[in-house]
């Protein structure tokens, strides 16, 4: 389980996260929802210690941050994490060199799934294919949790559909996923849990299935309610 406990983050005088707490479980897809600048990416960066916090604590399976956490949590930011002059093949070799949890068979399978060639240079890829390579680099690690920042941002509808298919495939299986997205329509039916952020705090955390069954509302309905208030 990933536990985010009362985290506070300030950028200069602006407090982006005032007091954010939530949990994300293995086997669940947790979606962080909020308007631009609400601090969704900052939360993912904080979990992976890519940004320091002013206060609060984050635990992964009960442990605080340690470099070996990256064998348990893989983070897929909204930007490619490899050198542009690398071929896909070189990027995979790099991952294989540094990560014990790297699963080459899975990487090959994802390449095939996305119809990517390992000889292609990262800098020559389209935005959609770059996002797919980024996704491959994160999903081919046998980790308990996958963090995804805006995986659908700025890419065409076919690529979005392909990426959305990943969520229902065995590539996710029983892993825990924390995802941030604006394109809620693409994955609304896949989300187990939604965490709505506004003004630096969690305004609502709910099980999507429960809210559908008890109140007959979709995630977007709840979002509208929250942001209209």
């Amino acid at each position: 389980m990933i536990e985010v406990k009362h985290i506070v983050k300030k950028f200069g005088r602006k407090t982006v996260l005032k007091d954010v707490s939530f949990t994300a479980n293995k086997g669940e897809i947790t979606c962080l929802i909020g308007i631009n600048g609400v601090g969704k990416t900052t939360i993912l960066n904080a979990i992976t210690r890519l940004t320091p916090l002013n206060d609060g604590e984050i635990l992964v399976n009960g442990e605080s941050f340690h470099p070996s956490i990256f064998e348990k949590v893989s983070y897929i930011p909204d930007t490619i994490t490899m050198l542009p002059n690398m071929k896909i093949k070189d990027a995979m070799e790099f991952m294989n060199d540094f990560y014990k949890s790297w699963n080459q068979e899975r990487a090959d399978e994802i390449l095939q799934f996305f119809n990517l060639k390992e000889e292609e240079k990262i800098s020559s890829l389209s935005k959609g294919n770059t996002a797919k390579v980024n996704l491959m680099l994160g999903l081919a690690l046998d980790t308990d949790f996958v963090l995804m920042d805006e995986p659908f941002s700025g890419i065409d509808i076919f690529s979005r559909e392909q990426i959305a298919d990943v969520f229902t495939s065995h590539l996710i299986e029983d892993r825990g996923v924390i995802i941030t997205t604006h394109e809620i329509n693409d994955i609304e039916h896949l989300i187990d849990k939604a965490v709505i952020l506004n003004d630096g705090i969690v305004v609502k955390e709910f099980s999507t299935e429960e809210i559908r069954e008890t109140e007959g509302k979709s995630v977007i309905d709840v979002m509208r309610e929250v942001y209209r208030q």
Binding site: T48, P67, F70, E71, P77, Y99
Partner: peptide
């Protein structure tokens, strides 16, 4: 610039 390899360097499962 466009190069964001720092993400990967800081996410390696080794002491920074």
């Amino acid at each position: 610039g466009k190069n964001t390899f720092a993400y990967r360097l800081l996410m390696l499962p080794t002491n920074r």
